[in-house]
Every structure is written in structure tokens, then in C-alpha cells.
């Protein structure tokens, strides 16, 4: 080291450790993340967590704004009422029907769209932007649009369905207790396909291309490639997306609320619209919370079962 030229450091402005008070780096490392986190945590705590606890407590109380003098703790009375509430059981059945068919069609059509978008064709960028557009349409507007489409006065659908022989004459299926649920389900499929397509497309694009080349070299048919490579790779993504989406759809009241309001004759009343009408129309908050707790429990059971199945089936 001797003999090497030593450059003049006299002009240096910063001397080590000079400028700042010495706080412990450790303390700083402990506290700093909470500086970034606290607004989010405080807000979630105040607007979601506390009301959630209050909401659960409501289900053990009688809180009807229309009967302000009858309020107070009533134990499990709301739950007993729920058990014998015929509308609750109808809503439960409707929820299953609504969720199952919505998710099934959304998933299958979404998968098809994702696989199409994973190939090359002319005008793909524009096509993608256009087919994803329904996702951007505000839900209340989707609901209104489809309600109008099903209206025989201004919508073409009843006429087409009649022409195809599905309906005996062009009438509004939203007024038919037998068929009404298919209205919101159709709107929901329309609205939800892009979501599945986007997530599945992202998953598809993460499958290494060499795998397909290898399969091709090995002489696999397209169907074999699909079942042996594509599906197993997508499985984890499918499981998690389907689970989250199922929960979301079961909770999703907007479409039904706008299109049918739960009618006719409760034929489209699902649990979440029932919660909303109970709270909003009858102002019976205690009972609304009871239904909500029941829905939460059902969804939790469902999530646990699906996660357990995923663990069993997916080995990745």
C-alpha cells in the first residue's frame, strides 16, 4: 500500500456519522414498517373489523328501527327464527343455484377465452380490449342493460327465444318464477367471464413454452397436451380463483337486486339480497345480521373444504 498515490480528501463534505443523530438502526427497522402500514390498518380496523364485531353482536339483539322500544339482547332468538324462516331456506337454495350456474359458465367460457387469447391471430390486441370490456361496465349498469334486454318491448331476447322455440311467446322471463333466476345469471356470466379469462390467461402464459415443444416432439395430440400439461399447470390457479370467485358471487347482490329485487315471489331471493332487503327495506338490523352470520358460516365451511381438497389433489 505504501507508495500508492494518495489523493486529497480535504474537500470531502461528508464525514462518517457526523450528520445524523444515532438512532438505533434496529429500532428503526422495527418501527418503520408500521409507519407505512398504519393508515391502512387503522382504516380497515375502524371501518371493517369493528363493524364486523358489532355486526355479529347484532345477530344476538333485536334492533329494528321501526320498533325502537323493542330493542335489546335476545340471545339466540334470531337464530331460532331463522331456522323456521321459510324464506331463508328458499334463499339458501336460490343461492346455491345462482352461485353454481354462474361460476360454472363463467369458468368454462373464461377458460375457452383464455385459451383463444393464448394463441396468435390478427387483431388480437383490439379483440382482447373489447372482450374484456364487460368487466369495466358498472354492475348496476350491467343489471339494467340485461333487464332491458329481457324486456319484450325494447329488448330482442324474448323474441329470439320465442323464435328458437324456447319460449312459447315473447314474454319477460324476469317475471316468471320458473325462469327468473336465469336473467341475473346471464348478466353475471356476461360480467364475470373477463375476470376468469384474465387470471387464467396470466396463468397460461406462465407455462414454459418448452413443455409444449417437448410434448409436440413426443407426439402428443392437442387433447393430450391439454389434459396432461395445461390443466395440471392451471389447477392451483383454478382452485384458488374458483374459491374466491364463488365466495364473491354468493355475496354479490347488486345484479339480482336491480334486475328482480328478489321477486317474483322470492324466486330470485338469494341470501345476500335477503340480507340487504331485510336491512334496507324492513330496517330490521338484528335479523339481517343473523342471516349474514349464517352466510359467513356457510362460506367458511365451503372455503375450508375447498382448501382441503386442493391440498389433496394438487401436488405442486
Amino acid at each position: 500500500m505504501e507508495g500508492k498515490p494518495v489523493i486529497d480528501r480535504a474537500q470531502k463534505t461528508v464525514r462518517p456519522g457526523e450528520t445524523r443523530a444515532r438512532r438505533s438502526l434496529y429500532l428503526q427497522y422495527m418501527v418503520e414498517p408500521f409507519f407505512y402500514l398504519s393508515p391502512a390498518i387503522l382504516l380497515i380496523g375502524a371501518v371493517i373489523m369493528i363493524p364486523l364485531i358489532i355486526g355479529i353482536s347484532y345477530s344476538f339483539q333485536s334492533i329494528e328501527l321501526l320498533k325502537p322500544f323493542a330493542s335489546g339482547w335476545i340471545g339466540f332468538e334470531n337464530y331460532v327464527d331463522l331456522w323456521s324462516d321459510r324464506k331463508f331456506w328458499i334463499a339458501m337454495e336460490n343461492t346455491l343455484f345462482w352461485t353454481f350456474w354462474s361460476i360454472t359458465f363463467q369458468f368454462l367460457l373464461g377458460l375457452g377465452l383464455a385459451m383463444l387469447l393464448n394463441t396468435q391471430f390478427f387483431g388480437k390486441k383490439l379483440f382482447q380490449a373489447l372482450v374484456f370490456l364487460p368487466w369495466a361496465v358498472p354492475t348496476f349498469l350491467s343489471a339494467l342493460t340485461w333487464a332491458w334486454l329481457f324486456n319484450p318491448v325494447i329488448g330482442p331476447l324474448p323474441h329470439w327465444l320465442a323464435a328458437l322455440g324456447i319460449l312459447s311467446e315473447p314474454y319477460n322471463i324476469l317475471g316468471d318464477p320458473e325462469l327468473a333466476m336465469w336473467g341475473p345469471i346471464t348478466a353475471n356470466i356476461w360480467f364475470g367471464v373477463p375476470f376468469f379469462a384474465i387470471t387464467l390467461l396470466a396463468a397460461l402464459q406462465s407455462i414454459p413454452g418448452e413443455l409444449y415443444e417437448a410434448a409436440e416432439v413426443d407426439g402428443a395430440t392437442p387433447w393430450q397436451t391439454f389434459t396432461k400439461i395445461t390443466l395440471p399447470f392451471l389447477a392451483p390457479m383454478i382452485a384458488i380463483t374458483v374459491m374466491l370467485r364463488t365466495i364473491w358471487i354468493a355475496n354479490f347482490a347488486d345484479l339480482i337486486f336491480v334486475m328482480t329485487g328478489g321477486g317474483p315471489a322470492n324466486s330470485t331471493q338469494i341470501l345476500s339480497t335477503y340480507i340487504f332487503t331485510t336491512a334496507f327495506r324492513k330496517l330490521d338490523f338484528g335479523y339481517a345480521s343473523t342471516i349474514a352470520v349464517a352466510l359467513l358460516v356457510i362460506l367458511l365451511i365451503y372455503a375450508v373444504i375447498l382448501l382441503w381438497l386442493r391440498k389433496k389433489l394438487v401436488k405442486i
Binding site: I54, Y58, N251, F276, A288, L295
Partner: peptide, 24 residues
């Protein structure tokens, strides 16, 4: 814990808190 709590908020029906929020 915080991540888990955030995940939970994605799972339960938001309608559940509609009544308490109205009152608050």
C-alpha cells in the same frame, strides 16, 4: 396476522357490516 386479516376481509360478506356501518 395482518396479511391474514386482510385476506379475511376479502372472504366474508361485506353486507354483514352494512347494518353496523349504517348505525355508526
Amino acid at each position: 396476522i395482518i396479511i391474514a386479516l386482510m385476506l379475511v376481509t376479502q372472504m366474508f360478506p361485506l353486507l354483514m357490516i352494512i347494518a353496523p356501518i349504517y348505525k355508526i
